[in-house]
Structure formats: structure tokens, C-alpha cells
Simulated scan of single mutants.
Amino acid sequence: MTMLFKPVVFRPLPRPVRPFPNETLSSYWGRLGAANHVLVEHVRLLSPWRTGLTSDTTKRTDELEILSGEPERSLTLALPELRWNEQGFASLPERNSYLRQWACRLCAAAKFPGQPIQVWALAHHTQVCTRHGLWIGKAVSQPQDQRDLEQLPGTVNAQLRHRRLLRRYGPDLISLAHHAARPFWRSLAGRYYTLAESDPTRLLQPRGSRTGWSPDL
């Protein structure tokens, strides 16, 4: 039986898109589609002439290079998933030590206005954007939830000290210290405090009973 021949054109998209540092692959695909006014599932529909029987583009940096107009080196440096798949350790601890979270909305806006971006960050170690003084970690479900820490300079300084400890001792030892201190922070979070939704200048305000929110690092 002869199959109907339906060629699919494979060519660069008209508007190239630069990746954001440590951006997730799904976030980059979404921005690439949005910039070219194409649904992301259509952007990823590549020619069978090039992909053969598979459409797993996470392992095909060359195809993403053609679509995006970005050089392979730039893509590999900026998109961790390309490196993880190429090096074959997608299921090893190095990969599992990262979590998806929203990039600082001000950092994203400086490079790509109006485009929210998700990035890979070291699990539990990136809670604050020290450049803009925004809380970007725990309890942030969308970029608009990132709170201004102008009234809490000690929190920004704590993130800076945390980075120094990471460079000196590495994430494994620091993670152990976090787990050891967890009971203490849980006890503080249970002292009738919760997130203040009505007053953006205060992150915490007293409320009569323990809530589910806690700095569970």
C-alpha cells in the first residue's frame, strides 16, 4: 500500500528569539511561538524528513537552532535541558536538584518586555532576586506574586550570604543545614503569621490561627 506523500516545510521562523539564562525548554518554545504568532504545538511539528520516527526535540539542538535563528552554543548554554539530555543524566541527582520557578519579572522585562519566563533554579536556594529585591521563590505561583522586599533588606542580605555559602560549601551541605533548621522555621511560621495580601509593603501580618504557609526550605 502506497502512503500519501505530504511534505512538511522546515525552515527558520521569521522572528528569532533569544533564550533567557537557565530558561526551561517549554518556556522557550512558548515564547518562540508567541513571537511568531504560531501555536507552540505547530512550532514543534517538524518535518519527518529530519526527525524520522521521533519528535523529541529536546534531544535535537540542531533543529531548534534552525527554527530559532540562535547559534547552537547559545542555546546549549542557556537551556539546561539540552545539556542534560546530551549528557544522558536526566534522571540523576544533578537534574533532580533543580526546580522550575518564575524568573524575576523585572529581569525578564528588561530583556523581553511582556513575556513571563520560567527558569530552572537550584531547589530551595534561589528565593530572592538580589538585583531587584523581589521574592521569587517559595509561594510564588505567577510573576505577579513576586513581592517587593524594600521594607525587608535583611532578607535580600540573607540571600547574598546564602550564595556565598553555596560557593564555599556546595548545595549538598547547605541543603542538609536547611533540613536541620526546618523545625525552627516551622515554629516561627506557626506563631499566627500569614501572607499579607492587602498591604504590599508588608509580607507578614498577624492573624488569629496557624496557616498552611511556611518557609519550608
Results as ranks from 00 to 15, higher is better:
Leu106Ala: 07
Ala158Pro: 05
Cys129Ser: 02
Gln142Lys: 15
Gln118Tyr: 04
Gln159Val: 00
Gln118Gly: 05
Gly114Tyr: 04
Lys111Thr: 11
Ala139Pro: 07
Lys138Asp: 14
Arg161Val: 06
Glu150His: 08
Arg164Ala: 11
Thr126Val: 10
Leu166Pro: 03
Gln159Met: 04
Ala103Trp: 01
Arg147Asp: 07
Phe112Arg: 13
Val156Trp: 07
Gly154His: 11
Arg163Glu: 15
Thr126Asp: 07
Pro116Ile: 01
Gly114Ser: 05
Ala108Arg: 02
Leu134Cys: 01
Gln151Cys: 09
Trp102Leu: 01
Pro113Met: 00
Ala109Asn: 03
Leu173Asp: 15
Ala121Asp: 00
Arg105Ile: 00
Tyr98Phe: 12
Leu99Thr: 13
Ala103Gly: 02
Thr130His: 08
Leu160Met: 10
Gln146Trp: 05
Val119His: 04
Arg163Ala: 11
Thr155Leu: 15
Ile117Cys: 02
Leu152Pro: 09
Arg105Thr: 02
Gln144Arg: 15
Gly133Cys: 02
Arg161Lys: 13
Gln159Glu: 08
Trp135Gln: 11
Pro143Arg: 07
Leu149Trp: 06
Gln144Thr: 15
Leu166Tyr: 04
Ala109Met: 00
Arg163Met: 12
Gln115Ser: 05
Gln151Phe: 10
Arg131Trp: 09
Val140Gly: 05
Gln144Glu: 15
Leu165Glu: 10
Arg161Tyr: 12
Ala103Cys: 00
Gly170Met: 08
Leu149Asn: 06
Cys129Ala: 03
Cys104Asn: 02
Leu165Ile: 04
Val119Tyr: 05
Glu150Ser: 12
Gln118Arg: 08
Thr155Asn: 13
His162Asn: 08
Leu99Trp: 15
Val156Asp: 02
His132Gly: 08
Ile117Ala: 01
Tyr98Thr: 09
Ala109Pro: 00
Ile117Gly: 00
Gly170Tyr: 04
Gln146Ile: 02
Gln151His: 14
Asn157Gly: 15
Lys138Phe: 13
Asp145Thr: 05
Leu122Phe: 05
Ala139Lys: 13
Leu152Glu: 13
His132Glu: 04
Gln115Cys: 02
Ala121Thr: 02
Gln101Asn: 03
Leu165Gly: 03
Phe112Asn: 07
Gln115Pro: 00
Leu149Phe: 07
Thr155Pro: 09
Arg131Pro: 06
Gln101Tyr: 02
Thr130Gly: 09
Arg161Trp: 12
Gly154Asp: 10
Gln115Ala: 03
Arg167Ala: 10
Thr126Ala: 05
Gly137Ala: 06
Leu152Cys: 13
Ala103Thr: 02
Cys104Val: 05
Val128Gly: 04
Leu173Trp: 13
Leu134Glu: 07
Gln118Ile: 01
Arg164Thr: 08
Arg147Glu: 08
Ala158Ile: 06
Lys111Asn: 11
Trp135Val: 05
Leu106Asn: 04
Ser141Pro: 09
Pro153Trp: 03
Trp135Lys: 10
Thr130Phe: 07
Leu99Lys: 13
Trp102Ala: 00
Arg131Gln: 13
Leu152Ile: 10
Gln151Val: 08
Arg164Glu: 15
Gln127Pro: 04
Leu165Asn: 07
